[in-house]
């Protein structure tokens, strides 16, 4: 009985706290995305700009680590039995990537644009035995270009 109470409590905490944190995070992401709307972050490697016009070019990067909550983990575990898209993890990956991009942009608020942007994803904090909660890390990097004048 005790085990079950603990599990149910963890699921409830996971759901309530997880949903609250996610909503709050999305509000913050959208607010900052609007602020950085004028700083394009694009994936092309070469832009057709005269070298003389470029004042500076530097690497910028941003990383974000988002943890899975207990509710999402159980939900994904159940999903593992039946197959299908693991919807509960979609928002985690989305948040991590957008947060990483935003932090990358924060490194160069005055740049004209960031080119050659790449995003890497990895799991961290996962032990070899399977009953541990994993975190997701998204890492975004690119080249910030500053133009003269």
């Amino acid at each position: 009985m005790n085990d079950l109470t603990i599990i149910i409590t963890l699921i409830a905490i996971g759901y309530i706290a997880g949903t609250w944190a996610e909503k709050r995070h999305y509000r913050s992401i959208e607010k900052r995305e609007r602020e950085f709307l004028d700083l394009p972050a694009i994936t092309i490697k070469n832009v057709d700009i005269d070298d003389a016009k470029v004042k500076n070019a530097e690497i910028v990067y941003g990383g974000a680590v988002i943890s899975v909550d207990y509710f999402k983990r159980i939900l994904a575990g159940l999903r593992n039995i039946f197959g299908g898209s693991v919807k509960s993890y979609e928002s985690l990956i989305d948040r991590a990537r957008r947060e990483a991009l935003l932090r990358m942009k924060t490194m160069a608020p005055d740049a004209t644009m960031i080119i050659n942007v790449r995003i890497e994803t990895s799991t961290i904090g996962r032990k070899s035995h399977k009953k541990s909660v994993a975190c997701l890390e998204a890492f975004a990097y690119g080249t910030a270009i500053y133009l003269k004048g």
Binding site: Y15, F71, K72, I74, L75, L78, R79, S85, K87, S88, E90, S91, D94
Partner: peptide, 10 residues
């Protein structure tokens, strides 16, 4: 992100 009700899915 798929708009979905996680509780219902659960």
């Amino acid at each position: 992100v798929t708009p979905t009700s996680p509780l219902r899915e659960f």
